[in-house]
Design a protein around this nucleic acid. Structure first.
Lengths: 149, 149
DNA sequence: TTGGGTGCAAAGGCTTTGCATGTGA
DNA sequence: TCACATGCAAAGCCTTTGCACCCAA
């Protein structure tokens, strides 16, 4: 998406960051795979197809930057890898992330959008005085495919 | 709690594991600090007060075992440490864990028990055919203490 | 020109593993 | 006795960092 790419370049400039081919390529890899949850190593492998000379350290550094710019979301499944996916919203609006449905059988990662948690967050604020600004929800279970088998 | 300690010893025996003073001591440390979320290193430091000769590897191995026996729960805050706390239920009943309220200001970790998520889980099953068996929920925000300051 | 970015390799830091010794049952 | 558990140290493994070179602006 050339439009998004322009937005990205502007965002970099706005933050005093330089537009490099590596950064564009890494965002491109993530943008072209929405819903996939890639590890740094996997991103590295995808980017190397176009940029064989890129270093893994650059991937890590760019990932960190993209995360701070809220362009990508982190997902930790406690398997030793941190995974990343492109955010649905480019700006840092008060967007609550979707929930992840992790299949214990095949390892697939589904998603689910819901606003029921806001009820919960209101209740937490009323009962405990804790003001929620973000949340992270993971559901573990069996996906429809694995249940059928 | 001498009663819980007996239960623990029996559980070990039932699983063909030996009752050692190190294992008892480690569970004791976690049992006596409910609601605290200790790293392996912290557990190690506490246990060493009574057992100065214990090895860090033993702590890691015991933690893993306790986790498999569902006696302790894992908590990952993505800060490089995995934390552990004693489970509320000794047996592996269908107990859904409590939610964690993580203060972005002071780092304190509160908890919240709720069953609203079951509604959500029912909806997920109906809409997507995904059968939830466990979940993990973290809320990030500002605790009542930090909000007052 | 010039300060941030990159690649490479080395270092970091939590966790796991190998192995000889120790110890519950 | 003997299989499992422990301690110590080394190895693993993902990630970060140092540094010289490079390149957008």
């Amino acid at each position: 998406m050339p439009d998004n790419r322009e937005q990205f370049k502007n965002l970099l400039k706005q933050n005093g960051l330089k537009v490099t081919s590596q950064r564009v390529a890494i965002l491109e890899v993530l943008s072209s795979r929405p819903g996939e949850h890639l590890t740094a190593e996997e991103i590295y492998d995808f980017v190397r197809v176009e940029y064989p000379d890129i270093g893994l350290a650059t991937v890590y550094r760019t990932i960190q930057m993209l995360s701070e710019l809220n362009l990508i979301d982190k997902l930790n499944l406690d398997d030793g890898y941190v995974r990343y996916e492109i955010s649905k919203f480019d700006k840092e609006e008060s967007c609550h992330h979707h929930h992840h449905l992790i299949c214990l059988d095949c390892g697939s990662i589904g998603t689910f959008q819901d606003d029921l948690l806001e009820t919960l967050e209101t209740r937490i604020k009323e009962l405990l005085g804790f003001e929620v600004v973000d949340h992270e929800v993971k559901f573990f279970g069996h996906c429809i495919k694995c249940r059928g088998e």
